[in-house]
């Protein structure tokens, strides 16, 4: 397969569960090998600056949070861009607002990537720290599997790389980025 695929982790890495998409994309990047080249993107708090990715890639997967009252914490949803925009727009964090607006604007462009959003309902997006609540940790394996399934549906073969980097090690990287130690996304 020669599809150009980008997977974007989106959210603020310092507001606990809001960073879950970023942590997950980094976790997958470190722990798996893939049959085709994948662009792993640290989307961070970016909104409109992500538009070029939507215009240049064939497939884009956005991994983020979706805070919705009435849905239980840890619920994982996979939606196409249209489903995401057509539904009740779930926008509690600043980043959720921007991502939705960015997608709306992009849908006016000549070319837009086939876009999938993998969203999880967070519990704590208020604490200023790198970390995950217990509720999110308890669905972590299922969450990672969901993302890998979406990648496989895009025609990518996925195998574990045996690096066995733990979630704690991933969180440490976000909490302690270092130029000297080349520790970053």
């Amino acid at each position: 397969m020669n599809k150009k695929i980008a997977i974007i982790g989106s959210g603020n890495a310092f507001f606990k569960d809001e960073g879950v998409g970023l942590y997950a994309v980094k976790y997958i990047k470190e722990n798996y090998d893939f049959s085709a080249e994948i662009e792993f993107v640290d989307g961070g708090t970016l909104g409109f600056l992500l538009m070029p990715l939507l215009q240049e890639f064939e497939e884009v997967i956005i991994v983020n949070t979706a805070s919705e009252d009435g849905l239980s914490v840890g619920k994982i949803m996979v939606k196409s861009c249209n489903e995401f925009l057509d539904g009740t727009l779930i926008k509690k964090t600043a980043n959720e607002v921007e991502i939705a607006e960015m997608l709306q604007i992009c849908s006016m462009a000549d070319h837009m990537a086939n876009t999938t959003l993998i969203s999880i309902v967070p519990q704590d997006i208020i604490s200023v720290e790198v970390g995950l609540s217990e509720a999110i940790r308890s669905v972590w394996s299922e969450y990672i599997k969901t993302i890998l399934d979406v990648l496989q549906k895009c025609g990518i073969e996925v195998v574990e790389s045996k690096k066995n980097l733990s979630l704690e090690e991933i969180l440490y990287t976000f909490a302690n980025p270092s130029i000297e130690h080349r520790r970053g996304f």
């Binding site: 603020n12 961070g44 708090t45 909104g47 409109f48 600056l49 600043a94 980025p177 270092s178």
Partner: peptide
């Protein structure tokens, strides 16, 4: 020396 890497996550633009 690492502050920049943290500070850049303040804002999305």
């Amino acid at each position: 020396r690492d502050c920049g890497l943290l500070a850049m996550r303040i804002c999305g633009v």
